[in-house]
Simulated assay, not measured.
Amino acid sequence: MSGPASRARVVLVGPPGAGKSTVGQVLARLLAVELLDTDDAVERREGRTISDIFIEDGEPHFRALEHAEVLRALAEHDGVVALGGGAVEHPDTREALLTVPVVYLEVSMAKALPRVGLSGARPLLVESPRARWKALMDSRRPLYQEVAGLVVDTDTEPVERLATLVAEALERGDLRPRSEA
């Protein structure tokens, strides 16, 4: 990533329903830092929901906004950053993520879909949610794995335990940027 060095302490990636925002809130509390959710940041900056951005301007426009927000977060936010599920699809985002500690929160479809619901709030999952979620994961799983220094399965462990696992890995120095591996 060009420009100033990253300030983000840890970044959480994964599909919708993995628990990025939920685990991120607890992890931020444990680390005594703030959580920045890039989806929320895009919505605040744009003054409209992600669903509205998709409908009014299309997915490519949203992805450009998302990429800019991720780069801003990595450069300016000294805490936990939770990325939207598709952020890793942008090659420059993946390159930037190699410079920070990244945790891939893995989840099964059986656990993810009930967590996200089937409302219009998840524009990519509105039509044929199971088939769409599987297709998204088939394309995104290798990208999550590419940037992650740690993979955590969120299916069975409570949120507090997941956040503790990440905090302990950071404290031990086991969770480092992929560029340092």
Rank of each mutant, 00 (worst) to 15 (best):
P4L: 03
P4S: 13
S6H: 12
A8E: 06
R9C: 06
V11W: 03
P15H: 02
P16S: 14
G17D: 06
G19M: 09
L27F: 07
L31I: 09
V42W: 07
E43W: 01
G47Y: 03
T49W: 04
D52W: 13
F54D: 06
F54P: 10
G58H: 11
G58I: 13
E59D: 03
P60F: 03
H61P: 00
R63M: 11
A64R: 15
A64M: 02
A64D: 12
R72K: 03
R72E: 13
D78I: 00
V81A: 06
A82K: 03
L83Y: 01
G86A: 12
V88A: 04
T93C: 14
R94V: 07
E95L: 14
P101D: 05
P101V: 08
Y104F: 15
L105N: 12
L113A: 08
V116T: 15
V116P: 08
V116S: 05
V116N: 11
G117N: 08
S119H: 01
P123Q: 08
L124Q: 12
L125Y: 11
E127W: 00
S128D: 15
P129M: 06
R130G: 13
L143N: 04
Y144G: 13
E146W: 03
E146K: 09
L150D: 07
V152P: 05
T154D: 03
D155W: 09
E157V: 07
V159P: 06
E160A: 14
A163R: 01
A163S: 09
V166P: 06
V166G: 02
P177V: 03
S179D: 10
